[in-house]
Design a protein around this nucleic acid. Structure first.
Lengths: 186, 186
DNA sequence: CCACCGAGTGAGTGACCGCTCACTCTCAGA
DNA sequence: TCTGAGAGTGAGCGGTCACTCACTCGGTGG
């Protein structure tokens, strides 16, 4: 019989495709419960493969974590870079555009949470700390180049981002106290 | 023989004293490796008691974590409140004084790390998220009352604090890249 | 059609960790 | 001096989890 005619057809993927799926799944699952709080089995299930195969694709959990972090950092960088490029092409202010793009990222709560977990994990895992610093350096350079802003303004920009991360993590969007209204941005 | 004369004298403490010691130890140890990343055995050792007794003092690890979080939040609140009180008594600007007091808190790296771990844990533990929100509400009220600042200035104040937390966690103080120099405050 | 290689897995294994239990030791007050 | 209540622990149990191994299956080039 032809494989495509089978009702429960099993089409093999390439290892690279699976790796992609795992990174995507990892960002979702790790985002909710953190790196240490999430068993590898959960990641495997979310990616639709066996745990055994997960460990063929990523030999240790630490390597998986690092890959997920790297990927989520790339995602954020790309979002900022594109926002700046579009704004420049349209003659708008790139700084404003990047601020907006961060607001847009908020829509994907998991991505923000991954950032928080990354910063928390950095305290105990030197490689994670290094990845975080690289991310900051890279992003800082981009924002500085695109906006030409003063260091103080740049500091405010990043500080704002960190606050948004935390607000997302603690569920401040569902709080109607004055503090929540003042600190969140919308 | 009199107990006080014994070379290896064993003086019993009250359960409350031990609980204090455990909270102190917990802030230190959890700060470094996070709540999930630190076995209760480590906390017990740091507090100088057996793991079995730790579980008599705090029936579950979750309760221990919550108590440590509560305690570290109180610490931070007290630091701010005192800075404001002193500044008022001396006729200085309370807002500035509180900013400085946060810089002073930076000296105790573990306290800042506990904040980061708290925010990360909040994503998966509703009680932690609630404690975080209470903390923000409480602190916001204090800072607003003492400074009378506009919401935007308050937002900047807290955003700044979150950035400092993250910078501490990722070891930015030992980085001499332009981004680190611009984003850290000293 | 077959041989081979990469995709993919079920069923473990050992280590770790949260938590418990049965027990000992200390000391204040009667 | 005796006792009861509370401080304190060693040893282990059960479950979970990172990681492994021996294996099957699917697709492709010869």
């Amino acid at each position: 019989m032809t494989p495509s005619a089978s009702p429960t057809k099993r089409t093999l993927s390439t290892a690279d495709e699976r790796r992609e799926a795992v990174l995507e799944a990892g960002m979702q699952v790790f985002g909710e419960r953190g790196f240490l709080g999430t068993p590898t089995m959960e990641v495997a299930k979310a990616a639709g493969i066996s745990q055994a195969y997960l460990f063929r694709l990523f030999p240790t959990k630490t390597e998986l974590i690092l890959a997920v972090i790297e990927r989520s950092n790339e995602r954020i960088y790309e979002a900022f870079a594109e926002a700046a490029a579009v704004a420049k092409a349209e003659g708008r202010d790139p700084g404003e555009a990047m601020g907006e793009s961060y607001s847009a990222l908020l829509a994907d709560r998991r991505l923000l949470l991954t950032q928080i977990h990354q910063h928390a994990a950095a305290a105990a895992m030197p490689e994670v700390a290094e990845a975080s610093r690289r991310m900051f350096a890279h992003l800082f350079e981009l924002v500085q180049r695109e906006t030409g802003a003063e260091p103080e303004a740049l500091q405010q920009f990043f500080a704002h981002g960190m606050l948004m991360n935390v607000m997302a993590a603690i569920g401040a969007q569902d709080d109607d106290g004055p503090w929540a209204q003042a600190l969140r941005v919308c």
